[in-house]
Write a protein that binds this DNA or RNA. Structure first.
Lengths: 119, 119
DNA sequence: CCGTATCCGCAGGGATACTG
DNA sequence: CAGTATCCCTGCGGATACGG
C-alpha cells in the first residue's frame, strides 16, 4: 500500500519545484483544458472563463518554458497560435488525475470539517 | 488507461478548492512531514527548516480546520502539542505520492526544458 | 487575433518581539 | 515549548491601453 513517502527537503527539492509551477492559480486549469486536444489562445480564454488574457499568456509562457506545452505560430493574417501538450505535459496528467479524483471523493468531508470548526 | 480527465470549471469546483489549500508554499510539506508519525511543533519547524514559526502555525491551523490534521494539547509544563494526520489527511497522501513520484522522475526533463528556453 | 506594457491593490509570507 | 502580534515588503493577479 505505498504508506511511505520520502521527501528530501534539502535544496533543490523536486517536489517543491514542481508544485511552485502547477500550484499557482491557473497552470493546472490550463493543462486540464489542453488535455483533450490542441487549442487556440482565445479558445482557452473562453473555456476557462474567469482568467484574464494577461494571466493566460503568462501561464502559457511558463508552461512552455518548463516543457509542458508547445506553442505553434502560424504566420497568417489574422494570426493563429495553437497550444498543445507535450509528452511531458501529458505524463503530468496522470498524477493530476489522481488528485482530481481525490478531490471529487473527499471535498464534502473537507466542507464538513470546516463547518465543524467554524460552528 | 484513465486518459480522460473531466473537470467542471463551474463554481464551486472541488479541485480548485483543494488546490487552493494544498497548493500553497507549505501545506504539502507539512503533510508529508507528518506522514511517518505524529510530531511536535518544534520538531516540524526543525525538519522543514526554512519555514518560519508563524507560517508553520498558520499552515497547521488551516490543515486542522480542513480536517487533515489533528492537534492534541497536553496540559503540562512545559507545554507539549502534537500533530497527527487524520484519516482524511492520510488518504490525501496517496495522490500526493503520485505527484512526488512524478516529480522525482521528471524534474530533470523540466530543468532541461528551462535551460533550452533560456539558452 | 494574439499578445505585451503599465498601473495598482491586495494577500502571502518573512523577521522580530512578545506571551502563557 | 508553543505559539500570537506587529510591521513590512514582495509579487501575484486584475484592468486597461496599446502594439504586431
Amino acid at each position: 500500500m505505498s504508506g511511505a513517502i520520502h521527501v528530501d527537503f534539502s535544496q533543490p527539492c523536486p517536489i517543491r519545484d514542481v508544485l511552485d509551477r502547477i500550484g499557482d492559480q491557473w497552470s493546472l486549469l490550463v493543462l486540464v483544458s489542453l488535455a483533450p486536444r490542441t487549442k487556440r489562445f482565445n479558445e482557452l480564454l473562453r473555456e476557462i472563463g474567469d482568467i484574464s488574457k494577461q494571466m493566460l499568456a503568462r501561464t502559457l509562457r511558463r508552461l512552455e518554458q518548463d516543457g509542458f506545452v508547445e506553442r505553434t505560430v502560424y504566420p497568417e493574417v489574422p494570426p493563429r497560435v495553437e497550444y498543445t501538450l507535450t509528452e511531458l505535459g501529458r505524463s503530468l496528467l496522470e498524477p493530476i488525475g489522481g488528485l482530481v479524483r481525490w478531490a471529487d471523493t473527499h471535498h464534502l468531508a473537507i466542507a464538513e470539517a470546516r463547518k465543524r470548526h467554524s460552528g
